[in-house]
Simulated assay, not measured.
Amino acid sequence: MHKQIRQYRQLIPSQRYQLQALHNKGFTQYQIAAHPSTVSRELKRNTPGEQYCAESEETLKDKRKKTVFKFRKHDARHEHILSEGLLMGGLLENIGYRMQLECPEIALSHTTIYRRIRENREAGGLFYQRLPRFGKTHWKGGKRKASQCLIPNRVDISQRPVIVEKRARIGNFEGDILSDQGTYLVTLVDRKNRLLLMAKTQVKTAEVVSNTINTLLNRISRVHTITLDNGGEFAQHEKVSQSTKAQIYFARPYTSYQRETNENTKGLVRRQWPKGTAFSPLTG
């Protein structure tokens, strides 16, 4: 059973008889399958009496198949909804949520929407070109020299408390810098509630950046941790730590996924101000 049930899908008769034998002998759901949720769902749906019966389940399954409501996934309105939503810059998750509110009878999950866009591309459509990260090029390790050697007393992210990874409390921030046409935006994002703090600077020296971070975080009542990348502009992190009483950690080079909240937020900012936009006219 461990090798057969990896993700939820309808069980075949032989698996149901295995499940019946193990369950009736007192094995737990975790002992029966690698994915206990599959076992749990099967038992809840198909145990009319005190014990699970594989033979009875086959009868129940056939009955459900004859009476189930077949939801028609393809609808002529989908193409128009996707076209308008992508044109307005909507995230696919948000398009899915709006469909659930405005037309629940034809609503699609965001994973189905991704699949529809892929199908549209294979058919010669252009929906994929309206995705916010279409065509983005990623750097590979070794292309650039990491500047972690420029950061004194750097504390690696491996020493960061586990609670930060769980997003269980407010006050754990991720920081980075956006730049365009000689002007910079210092960004700080809370991992739990996604609060964005942002300020403009004309230079990105370590002193200016540390002062800007302190000014932004003075608005926050409690800051537990800050996770930064390895840019030399964060060399005065100890000054920030002393002012905010926060522990500061640095992600490993070329691993932007370790600051995924900040990276995703910067992507949203770029949708408002694409590359090539001058930050200098911005105020605040």
Rank of each mutant, 00 (worst) to 15 (best):
D75N: 10
R72W: 11
L101E: 14
I113Q: 02
G26Q: 03
L11F: 06
F250P: 01
N172Q: 03
W139N: 11
T212V: 04
K66S: 06
E55M: 14
Q31E: 13
N24S: 12
K25E: 15
R194C: 06
G135L: 12
K61C: 07
A54N: 05
L195E: 14
P274L: 09
T277Y: 14
R9T: 04
G141H: 11
A123I: 03
R194E: 02
Q10F: 12
P36R: 02
N94L: 12
G232P: 08
E55I: 08
P161N: 09
G182Q: 01
S243W: 15
R16K: 05
T67V: 13
Y254L: 02
P13G: 01
M1N: 03
H237D: 02
I248Q: 02
G124F: 02
E260K: 08
Y30Q: 15
N214I: 14
S56F: 09
L195C: 11
L86S: 06
E263P: 01
A246K: 00
K266A: 13
L178A: 08
T277Q: 05
V208D: 05
R222W: 09
S40H: 10
I170L: 13
S256D: 06
T215C: 09
N214T: 08
G182V: 03
F69G: 09
Q15H: 12
K65D: 05
K140I: 06
G124R: 13
A107I: 01
R191Q: 08
T59F: 15
R154D: 06
A123N: 15
L195Y: 05
K143L: 11
L216H: 01
I157G: 05
R115P: 05
Q29W: 10
Q258T: 09
P152E: 04
L195V: 06
L92C: 09
V164C: 07
R252V: 07
R64P: 00
L268T: 11
S280E: 10
E105A: 08
C53Y: 13
N230H: 07
I81K: 01
S179P: 08
L178Q: 01
K266P: 07
Y17I: 10
N24L: 12
K275Q: 13
Q18G: 10
V208W: 06
R271Q: 15
T283P: 05
K143T: 09
V223E: 03
R271W: 04
E57H: 13
